[in-house]
Write a protein that binds this DNA or RNA. Structure first.
Length: 268
DNA sequence: ATGGTAGTCGCACTA
């Protein structure tokens, strides 16, 4: 089967429920992973999502900030979330799809890390680094299971490659592209031999972004983007990716999120 | 070197 998965930092699912419905109607993914839903589970638009044909919904939300949700046309066998750094933040939810051979989907919202890229004076940056180290430890421990089929998606808040940002030089001291973050991301990447699905389709010498700041006067003209959102798969799925796209047009929708949806198709 | 925007919640915080 061709399995289509999308990831999107929606920056308030209640405010942009119409855009979620539009994306689901246009792309018909099997699974949509949302980040920054910014609401508690009770305030999540369950009815609208179900009406759109997504009856299997795993929500891990908190009041006002963060929060993740995985919407699926395929039933779940199991759902669990991990409280990284034990802060009580809702930044992760894992769902096991009930399909032959199984498929585990990790939906992440990694801390943004604040402005100052020094963990000694910026707690938020320290939190981001600790979060990444905890992810790496976790996947390194599960390495024996790397034959399992897993997809890791989400807003990882790091643009690792030179062409994942509009200016490598100018962003070296900007949180999301600093050497320490890139190094930790590379360690995480190596911890489970993850495959970077997006870069399977766009060579490393070409620019590739999924986020454009709200603060630019004209985001499209300036095109000062970053690739903060990612889709990774385990080695068991190394040959599975058959298509990938960034729905950049959605960044131009009225009252858009600052992130564009990233979508991949896997041949299972 | 700086300030620019958005969302939630309630007049501060996170991004």
């Amino acid at each position: 089967m061709d399995f289509k998965i999308a990831t999107w930092n929606i920056n308030s699912v209640r405010l942009r429920i119409n855009q979620v419905e539009r994306l689901l109607a246009e792309e018909k993914p099997d699974v949509l992973c949302l980040q920054e839903i910014k609401c508690i589970n009770d305030a999540f638009p369950w009815k609208e999502i179900r009406k759109a044909g997504y009856e299997h919904i795993a929500v891990h939300g908190q009041k006002g900030y963060h929060g993740v949700a995985t919407l699926s046309r395929i039933p779940f066998k199991k759902t669990e979330s991990r409280d990284f750094c034990k802060k009580g933040d809702c930044r992760h939810i894992a769902t096991d799809l009930d399909i032959p051979g199984g498929l585990r989907i990790h939906n992440f919202y990694v801390p943004a890390g604040g402005d100052e890229p020094d963990p000694a004076i910026n707690e938020k940056f320290a939190h981001k680094l600790a979060f990444l180290r905890e992810m790496t430890d976790l996947y390194a421990k599960q390495r024996s299971k790397s034959k399992n089929r897993m997809v890791l998606v989400g807003d990882l808040n790091i643009a690792p490659l030179e062409n994942d940002v509009w200016s490598h030089k100018q962003l070296l001291k900007v949180v999301s592209h600093t050497p320490i973050e890139v190094e930790l991301m590379n360690e995480l990447y190596a911890s489970h031999d993850w495959v970077d699905v997006m870069r399977r389709f766009v060579p490393e010498d070409e620019k590739l972004y999924s986020w454009w700041s709200y603060r630019a006067k004209d985001w499209e003209a300036a095109d000062r983007g970053r690739r903060l959102d990612h889709i990774w798969v385990t080695p068991a799925l190394a040959d599975a990716p058959v298509a990938m796209k960034v729905r950049k047009d959605a960044r131009g929708w009225e009252r858009a999120s600052d992130h564009a949806p990233v979508i991949a198709t896997l041949r299972l």
